[in-house]
């Protein structure tokens, strides 16, 4: 029975619960917007990374370079799209 619950997965689970709780702190305590957003960004990305490495085994084959290249590329372009769009649709708008 024990071998069905490997320590790595269990720790991953506990960690992701803890990170969710950390993000919840922003909800329960009054924080400045900058602090809140920082906590959100940090917890969300760490949690995503935990999923990738612990649960999704992204590191285990010799394709892992290709896999991580794809992921980083995707995340980078997604961020460019998000911030580029906000820049020209909202922040850089002149009335």
């Amino acid at each position: 029975m024990r071998e069905l619950f490997p320590a790595k997965q269990v720790w991953g689970f506990v960690l992701s619960l803890a990170l969710t709780a950390a993000a919840l702190l922003v909800y329960f305590f009054n924080m400045s917007r900058a602090t809140g957003m920082t906590i959100f960004i940090v917890t969300a990305f760490i949690q995503a990374f935990v999923q990738l490495v612990v649960f999704m085994h992204a590191r285990e084959t010799d394709d892992s370079k290709s896999i991580f290249a794809t992921l980083y590329y995707a995340i980078f372009i997604a961020l460019i799209t998000v911030f580029g769009t906000l820049l020209c649709m909202i922040w850089g708008w002149k009335y």
Binding site: D63, T70, L71, A74, I75, I77, A78, T81, V82, L86
Partner: peptide, 23 residues
């Protein structure tokens, strides 16, 4: 490997949804 590449595309799919959401 092909599925990982597909997940890369999915990141962009949800990235676009988030882009539109934030806008």
């Amino acid at each position: 490997l092909g599925f990982w590449v597909f997940l890369g595309a999915e990141i962009m799919l949800f990235g676009t949804l988030f882009t539109s959401y934030f806008t």
